[in-house]
Design a protein around this nucleic acid. Structure first.
Lengths: 202, 202
DNA sequence: CGGCCAAGCCTAATCACATTAGGCTTGACC
DNA sequence: GGTCAAGCCTAATGTGATTAGGCTTGGCCG
């Protein structure tokens, strides 16, 4: 590989994230990004097909990061405690990286393979705790109650909803607790078995 | 007012919404929009300061529309039934107008006054039902559990999450039911009174 | 009735970016 | 000591928002 690089894919992605966070999705230009890593705009196209691809790479990176944090929050025992910790980690991540977070959930844009995978991996981080809480059969439906709440809550928070007064932190804790309570009591989705431990000896 | 107009603010907003829905937020250009209402791009600037202002107007219009639908769904009695109906109306609206929905919750962009108000009005449509369910004291915290779930769910659905299998419709119903169950049983947020009907005779 | 004037449009710039074309340099490898 | 691909760069090109300046229309006032 002749001619040593002035930068790297990883550095570009990192710089892009930084720019995105500081100036918002608007005001983010290829030229600025290039400047941030010490090259000219056209040089970026040797590494990423176009702006969309680049942004996609940032998104993937952020899904991985979120996955890491959720895994980190999964230590300790007690499904309720773990899920609560993960919920807080999730919100903290979103608030610390609002632009990236917006990216991760932008509605348009077809996802790349890598994006799908990274997202799925992140989401999967909390499945074990759900399984412990409601049984492996009901884990996915249960995740589909808390996860949307988390996403909805932080995205509304970031979008500046919640202006009717009252503490936002308290509302969050209240929501998590309410949902976990609703989940742990009863609440089978369609028609799974009543209890775990199937296949008893005949 | 001399020189009769070829179009109107309202028609422009309507056309913009249509374009937005059909081509996505990208691919939406002032020139296309102008063409759709029979004028040239620069003429739009006589009515809206710039693209952002125009998009804002679309957003406000959509908040009003959502508010109308939620109000329409609020008929009939039984707080649980009303909230369930509103939840379905909410999801139906989002799925029918995905681009508009994305607009309504875009994270960046400072909201205009009108935007704030329209949003608040829409959100307020379900407060009475929550009050009936959990008492007026706890209505707001309760709304802040279900509403984020609704938003999170449909926005994840639109963003193409939920690929791990299982019926999405069923997951939605399950989520709504779970949360309403969690809310109706117990679940006071911070430290409000145990029961309604305060102020008993001394 | 004829002139005045603002509203509403239009055409022709201007500007900011993304993206492409074509070419120079460097250093690994022969 | 020459070859060649990687990695950059400068100079276009193209698209889309936005601005500048001017034409037309029709209500209204004398």
């Amino acid at each position: 590989m002749p001619a040593r690089s002035k930068t790297s894919d990883a550095e570009i992605v990192r710089a892009a994230l930084e720019l995105l966070e500081s100036r918002g999705a608007e005001g983010f230009s290829m030229a600025d990004l290039a400047g941030a890593v010490g090259v000219r705009a056209p040089s970026l196209y040797g590494r990423f097909a176009d702006r969309a691809t680049l942004i996609d790479a940032v998104e993937v990176e952020q899904w991985c990061e979120l996955g890491r944090r959720l895994h980190a929050a999964a230590t300790g025992r007690g499904a309720l405690a773990v899920l609560t910790r993960q919920a807080r980690a999730y919100r903290a991540f979103a608030k610390a990286n609002p632009a990236a977070y917006a990216l991760m959930f932008r509605i348009d844009a077809d996802r790349s393979e890598a994006g799908q995978a990274a997202r799925a991996a992140a989401v999967a981080a909390s499945l074990p705790a759900f399984a412990a809480l409601v049984g492996s059969h009901a884990a996915l439906p249960a995740a589909r109650v808390l996860t949307p709440f988390l996403h909805g809550f932080v995205s509304m928070e970031l979008a500046g909803a919640f202006r009717l007064g009252g503490g936002v932190d308290a509302a969050f804790e209240h929501g998590v607790a309410t949902i976990l309570r609703g989940l742990s009591r009863a609440g089978r989705p369609t028609a799974p078995p009543r209890r775990r431990r199937p296949r008893r000896p005949p």
